[in-house]
């Protein structure tokens, strides 16, 4: 009888479907969580950070967080402050609510702890590392830096990829005036120390060994190089555009 067949077919399809897809009973774990109550590091990192810092904390346009050397030189407070308040004047936004962001103080702390936990250095480095920040007043130590020393170090090491006077080579130019305004001194210093392992830029040890000194850069030498790079980026060269220059 055709109707019996129809029943059998429908029943079989339903049975197969329910076995393959599983039961539709809602799972309490999938309840909606208010944005302020999200405490999972991976969710917070995915929602707020990967746009610029890359899906796995590296290979994003902004400096990588998945960098053990960076994790070794930066302190919890410095990390927390950067996330909470952003880097005023640069593209790193403030994320804490008090500063106009969308995260609670607790969530910022979760991000700090998560970043530390996920990408901590495998072993405590034996050498004395150059400090992330030279001083609060002069974070990258540019005031006392010697541009001429920096020039010499740059030409013997950095210029191999960035070209003489930073006009660019395999690794692109550094003498762009726009860079002077977009990249803070401390980020410049950090990139000289850590390099960009995800983009094949070596760290201060390798860079230093390539230079005429043949040794890892010291904290002062890093400041000197940063000062020289800054001198290449004369901001006065920026073409005037119909834009608000002071934003």
């Amino acid at each position: 009888m055709p109707t019996a067949n129809l029943y059998a077919i429908v029943a079989a399809i339903l049975l197969l479907a329910s076995m393959s897809i599983g039961c539709g009973k809602p799972d309490p774990a999938e309840r909606f969580v208010r944005p302020d109550d999200i405490t999972d590091f991976h969710v917070l990192f995915q929602q707020n950070c990967i746009g610029c810092h890359g899906a796995t904390g590296d290979l994003g346009p902004a400096p990588p967080l998945a960098d053990p050397l960076f994790q070794a030189i930066v302190s919890d407070d410095q990390l927390r402050e950067t996330i909470a308040d952003g880097r005023p004047g640069t593209l790193m936004p403030a994320f804490e609510k008090d500063q106009g962001g969308s995260l609670t103080t607790d969530q910022v702390q979760i991000l700090v702890a998560g970043i530390r936990e996920t990408w901590k250095a495998a072993s405590t480095p034996t050498d004395k590392l150059p400090p992330y920040q030279v001083s609060t007043a002069d974070p990258a130590g540019l005031k006392d830096a010697n541009v001429m020393t920096g020039k010499e170090l740059f030409e013997t090491s950095c210029a191999k990829c960035h070209g003489d006077a930073g006009v660019g080579g395999d690794a692109g130019a550094l003498n762009e005036p726009a860079l002077a305004r977009l990249m803070s001194d401390i980020v410049l210093r950090r990139l000289i120390i850590t390099g960009r392992p995800d983009l094949k830029m070596p760290d201060y040890v390798t860079l230093g060994k390539k230079s005429h000194t043949g040794e890892a850069f010291t904290s002062e030498q890093i400041s000197d190089i940063a000062a020289y790079v800054r001198s290449l980026q004369q901001p006065t060269k920026i073409a005037a555009l119909p834009a608000d220059e002071n934003q």
């Binding site: 762009e176 305004r181 977009l182 920026i238 073409a239 555009l241 834009a243 608000d244 220059e245 934003q247």
Partner: peptide, 9 residues
């Protein structure tokens, strides 16, 4: 919303 450096970059 953008300064000249941002537009350039």
């Amino acid at each position: 919303q953008m300064n000249s450096a941002e537009v350039t970059a």
